[in-house]
Computed example of a mutant assay.
Amino acid sequence: MSRSFEQYQKQKLISSYFSVVLSIALVLFLLGILGLLVVNTKKMADHFKEQITISIFLKDDAKESEAEQLQKTLAMAEHTKSVSYVSKEQAAEQHSAEIGEDFQDFLGYNPLKNSIDLKLRADFVTPEEIEKIAGGLSEKTFVEEVSYDKPLVGLLSENVKKISFWILVASGIFTFIAFLLINSSIRLSIYSKRFIIKTMQMVGATKTFIRKPFIWTNVKLGMLGAVIAMAALAASLFYLDKTFPELQLFGDIEMLALLFGSVFLLGILISLVCTYFATQRFLNLRTDALYY
């Protein structure tokens, strides 16, 4: 009978520990994903910004030397990500491939212009900076027109600011929710031992002595949950890097190390704080209140 009861208590304890570890791992994993999103928000925004192309259309009488000189000047400029020359013949081939037929057969000539495609570094992709660069290029005598998607530039800059703000807000809210969820799991775990806590207190054990094993046990559970969360986070990171290699998620190793370290320390810190206050609650509880 006693052996059966001990086995029941052991299974109950394992189940309690498992639920604590699982809740900590799940919450920390979601926090890690959110942290990964925060860390890479600028990188993702920069990636989309650097896809915007400024097309510099040259006049028909523009000299080849003038086009080459402009291309070299742009290549050396601090705002340039990449620059490439597109002849009118190349442009015609690309356009024909897009529409599925050769428009030159219908028109009888090629109306397109020789052009230089310019892509800027992300820091310069703002309505003001692009307008300034485009204005300077338009002043050149051999340039016919400078074209870019103005509405897209304005919309992209505005949305990046909004997304960054709301991600920070969501991070704060989710961190608070994570604390509540882990706290609830740990409190339920300690609740089952409330009679043991009160018995130890009644025989003269100090609060520090009573709290110590509970804190150490839950800190170890927090560490285990954090390790599981980090493993799941690493697997997700490898998957995302293979799916979206252009984002270069492993480009900043120091930032990733800081993120993983933060997840691990957060697992320890939240477990420690929650266990301290949970045990303190039962230590301060009257004996007759333990049954409610």
Score class of each variant (00 low, 15 high):
66 E>P: 01
39 V>L: 15
126 T>E: 07
43 K>I: 14
61 D>P: 01
72 K>T: 14
144 E>A: 13
152 L>T: 13
154 G>T: 06
51 Q>A: 05
68 E>V: 01
120 L>F: 13
111 P>Y: 07
163 I>H: 01
105 D>Q: 13
50 E>M: 05
121 R>Q: 15
105 D>M: 10
103 F>Y: 12
127 P>A: 01
103 F>H: 03
135 G>T: 05
91 A>C: 09
60 D>H: 07
109 Y>H: 14
116 I>L: 08
164 S>P: 01
46 D>T: 06
119 K>M: 11
126 T>H: 04
159 N>M: 03
65 S>T: 13
54 I>T: 15
150 K>M: 10
148 Y>I: 07
50 E>G: 06
117 D>S: 11
66 E>F: 01
126 T>G: 02
151 P>M: 07
50 E>A: 05
117 D>N: 14
107 L>H: 09
68 E>Y: 06
127 P>Q: 01
147 S>H: 10
36 L>I: 05
107 L>E: 12
104 Q>F: 02
163 I>W: 04
131 E>R: 00
57 F>C: 08
148 Y>F: 15
72 K>Y: 08
136 G>N: 14
85 Y>T: 07
144 E>L: 12
129 E>N: 13
108 G>L: 08
122 A>V: 05
104 Q>W: 01
48 F>C: 00
80 T>F: 10
77 A>R: 03
52 I>G: 09
156 L>H: 02
116 I>K: 00
152 L>P: 05
111 P>G: 06
155 L>C: 00
99 I>Q: 07
159 N>K: 05
89 E>K: 04
111 P>L: 04
138 S>T: 14
137 L>K: 01
128 E>R: 00
153 V>R: 01
46 D>K: 03
96 S>W: 05
118 L>F: 13
104 Q>T: 15
74 L>W: 09
105 D>S: 10
36 L>T: 12
125 V>A: 02
51 Q>V: 04
44 M>W: 14
74 L>A: 09
87 S>A: 06
97 A>Y: 09
79 H>T: 08
154 G>W: 00
120 L>H: 09
66 E>S: 11
43 K>S: 15
100 G>M: 03
115 S>H: 06
73 T>K: 11
147 S>E: 14
120 L>Q: 09
114 N>M: 02
110 N>V: 11
107 L>G: 10
136 G>V: 04
157 S>R: 00
108 G>R: 03
57 F>T: 08
46 D>N: 15
111 P>Q: 04
40 N>F: 13
139 E>F: 04
74 L>I: 14
36 L>R: 02
87 S>W: 10
35 G>N: 11
154 G>V: 01
78 E>W: 01
79 H>W: 12
